[in-house]
Write a protein that binds this DNA or RNA. Structure first.
Lengths: 117, 117
DNA sequence: CAGTTATTTAACTATTTGGTTTTATACACC
DNA sequence: GGTGTATAAAACCAAATAGTTAAATAACTG
């Protein structure tokens, strides 16, 4: 609903480290240290990435002794899916005609540029 | 395939102005000036947003006299859709059990009475 | 209590981002 | 060629991002 939610979600996803963290969490809940292990990166750096993911609602953090286990929460991805849905027809049907149209616009010079369906 | 492609796509989508531009382009090809019109923002600012979208492959620019008409190219969104697909099961089936699990983790594992929400 | 482990916070730095204004380029029209 | 219009590039700035190291917090362990 709020536009900022998508901002947060997309920008959280715009980093390969964070996407890798999500991929790891898809295998199951785990600790920060274990999440950090595959990366050549300090602990605090990973901690910051987790904060970004948490702000986007993509992870949930528990508390278990001195560990803060992280779990995937894919609910925000549903919003992304819904947003994407608006554009599905563009990559499905009209792509070839779009290409044609651009070809025409680039060579020809008399349209008013408002083609669509 | 390359991880950087998704980086570019997601970060291009992480801005409300740019998503609004894509929404406008879904209605049809148009000029930079017309794209800029709804925003309280200078022309060069919009020009930069278009460059980001272009780098992500989300728009294609033609040339028609002194105009550079922009058109939507939704192909990169297909990659997003494919990436999302890996997580679909998480927002479909297992979400409730995830909630339960976290509930358990947060209340359990706390034998000396230190309480935390 | 002292020590160890897990994690976050603080302070700092370099780079990127999103905006500005001013200047340059490309084309159309007279 | 000179003028107006559409757009991009340059130069600049403030704020955000992604990383660092060092210190603080929180919990277990002996």
């Amino acid at each position: 609903m709020t536009p900022d939610r998508l901002d947060n979600i997309f920008s959280a996803l715009a980093d390969p480290t964070r996407r890798a963290i999500l991929a790891r969490l898809a295998l199951g809940t785990t600790s920060v240290t274990e999440l950090a292990e595959p990366f050549r990166m300090s602990g605090p750096a990973v901690s910051k990435h987790l904060k970004v993911l948490e702000r986007a609602g993509l992870i949930i953090r528990g508390r278990e002794a001195q560990w803060r286990p992280c779990s995937l929460d894919a609910a925000p991805l549903k919003e992304v899916r819904d947003w994407l849905e608006h554009y599905r027809r563009f990559w499905e049907t009209s792509f070839d005609r779009l290409e044609e149209y651009l070809q025409e616009v680039q060579t020809n010079g008399d349209s008013d540029g408002t083609d669509q369906r």
